[in-house]
Design a protein around this nucleic acid. Structure first.
Lengths: 155, 155
DNA sequence: CCAATACATGACACTTTAGTCAAGTATTGA
DNA sequence: TCAATACTTGACTAAAGTGTCATGTATTGG
């Protein structure tokens, strides 16, 4: 259970766009220098999100990338999904067949139950966190997120 | 946000031990054949958990691995930790510095806030799931886990 | 004692993920 | 028009994560 590099850097790039002027957007270079990532990598990440319909590109002089929706209409789940994370329960099982063609527990599996409960909870949380919730000082964001998680995993 | 192979297979091996006779334990070969994984890999995973003090090995004829604690005294969090997953917020930041020596958002970071809230929730949930909760038919396990998550991420 | 069983260890090969590069196409403005 | 800007693409290199192997050590039973 780890945050992948794509999730981390992809979200950072998107947040830059969210904080920029919606009409003007930002160029790959600008995002790269603001985030301390290489332009080539930024390009790759933005393209993934463009493919998912979260942002779009404008070519030529004064071009760049722009957000397709308002930050209030874009959830953390949308972003993470665009970046190819958060596999479904079925995908988790398919990825771990051991040295068989399919997992020996395919019919009855208590672990599947655990991963399923967990990933659904994570998905639910991410769906409730909007990009707009992430814009602002860290302390305030933390407060907002805590409320989004309503009596979460803790009793 | 993905379940790693070590988490998946490691938990499966541990669960085999939990279901076996506490005195007799199981040999690496037995676990490997029950799970459809290679003995060499099972060995590697068990060693990680032995290092963490969850299980211990007995050498020689009739040797094998045995659980150190009762399944009711061992949580999913213990297992996942032993397998090297679930990084702390600090580790997440350290792992993603971009092309600088340290992340440009080191002082103020709204994303850190998101990952922190999320991983703490996951950690909390895993701490409440005992290995004994995972022993039994899938349907019943699911029911138990749902209750462990009390009004989780969903409203 | 010694042969068979079974864990112990570290180095290795393989696979996936992360990140870069080079050569290309579209758009603008002078 | 044409030169500068900036996105596009796919192939490539590097790093991390997976999984295997060979060699070694401890224990037991005959």
């Amino acid at each position: 259970m780890k945050i992948t590099a794509q999730e981390e850097y992809g979200l950072r790039c998107l947040l830059q766009l969210a904080q920029a002027d919606r009409e003007t957007g930002l160029s790959v270079k600008e995002i790269a220098s603001k985030e301390g990532i290489s332009p080539a990598y930024v390009e790759k990440l933005l393209r993934l999100m463009a493919k998912a319909g979260l942002i779009h590109s404008v070519r030529g002089v004064n071009g760049g990338y722009r957000l397709d929706r308002k930050p209030t209409e874009l959830s953390l789940r949308d972003v993470v999904r665009a970046l190819g994370s958060l596999p479904t329960t079925e995908e988790i099982c398919d990825r771990h067949p051991g040295n068989r063609t399919s997992c020996v527990h395919i019919q009855e599996c208590c672990i599947r139950s655990a991963w399923s409960t967990l990933t659904q909870a994570i998905d639910g949380f991410m769906g409730k966190v909007l990009i707009s919730d992430l814009m602002g000082p860290e302390a305030k964001v933390t407060q907002t997120l805590q409320s989004r998680i309503t009596t979460p995993f803790s009793v």
